[in-house]
């Protein structure tokens, strides 16, 4: 479904992605893990066309992407952002947020589609005419997912979709995302700083550091803790909670 090879990207003079290769099969779920500045989100943003300065090949559903994305691309792939408080327009009602993409793509029947999208993410129709500030964090993230789903894409790019949420809400949203992938046959690329979240959601995982993929693993390997690269090992240990002795083994990877 998605093939990325030799992807390099730059922000001004900063080389933020270095030869990133990723391949995700249809209905697959790929996880990118890394700390801030690792370039994990930049991979998603480059695919969606939010980064201008890049080189390499990105092939989505057999089609090689050029410098500009067309409308068809956005019907195929949608993105969910990290911060549900920032990704919904503060002055638009939920209804408007969901109706707009339908109108842009001329899909018609927007009323029914909005209701369906809200149902898909488990939100009552009563939320439809609220403003984002009248919703809780989890509800907002559901709206953001509904907005991504309303164009009936085959691919969802998830940029830390639960890191701003409470753990109990995170569980609900992760379950929702898992169910949607099964029911709608979606393909995911998920970015997170949390190894456990990615291990739970994804089949294949890549660990990134300073713009490079340092190690690839399957969910099974992660479960056994058989990571080889010292950086991934360190991330793995850090995910286990606070242990004074372990902290002393940490190295800075600058």
């Amino acid at each position: 479904m998605i093939e990325i090879s030799k992807l390099n990207a730059w922000f001004d003079d900063n080389h933020v992605l270095k030869d990133v290769d990723i391949s995700v099969p249809a209905n697959g779920s790929f996880g990118l893990v890394g700390e801030s500045g690792s370039g994990k989100s930049t991979v998603l943003r480059t695919v969606t066309g939010l980064v201008d300065d890049w080189e390499g090949t990105i092939t989505v559903k057999g089609k090689k992407l050029g410098p500009k994305r067309d409308k068809d691309f956005y019907r195929l792939a949608q993105m969910v952002f990290q911060d549900p408080f920032g990704s919904l327009h503060p002055r638009h009602t939920i209804d408007r947020i969901l109706t707009e993409p339908v109108n842009i793509h001329g899909l018609g029947n927007s009323d029914a589609r909005v209701v369906e999208a809200l149902t898909q993410v488990g939100l009552d129709n009563a939320f439809r005419f609220r403003y984002p500030h009248q919703l809780s964090g989890g509800q907002r993230q559901r709206v953001a997912i509904a907005r991504a789903l309303i164009l009936e894409p085959k691919i969802l790019l998830l940029d830390e979709p639960t890191s701003a949420l409470d753990v109990s809400i995170q569980a609900e949203v992760l379950n929702l995302l898992g169910r949607l992938r099964r029911d709608l046959g979606l393909t995911y690329i998920m970015v997170s700083h949390d190894l456990a979240v990615v291990a739970h959601m994804c089949d294949d995982i890549a660990i990134m550091n300073h713009g490079r993929i340092v190690e690839r693993a399957t969910a099974g390997q992660l479960a056994e803790g058989t990571l080889e690269h010292p950086y991934s090992q360190q991330l793995y240990k850090a995910a286990g909670g606070y242990d004074r002795a372990v902290v002393d083994t940490f190295v800075d990877w600058d």
Binding site: V167, G178, A199, H200, A219, L222, A223
Partner: peptide, 16 residues
């Protein structure tokens, strides 16, 4: 319980 775990299990998490 609702924390995701690194046990290779992809089934739904128990919710609160």
């Amino acid at each position: 319980n609702c924390l995701p775990k690194m046990d290779g299990d992809h089934s739904d998490l128990p919710t609160l």
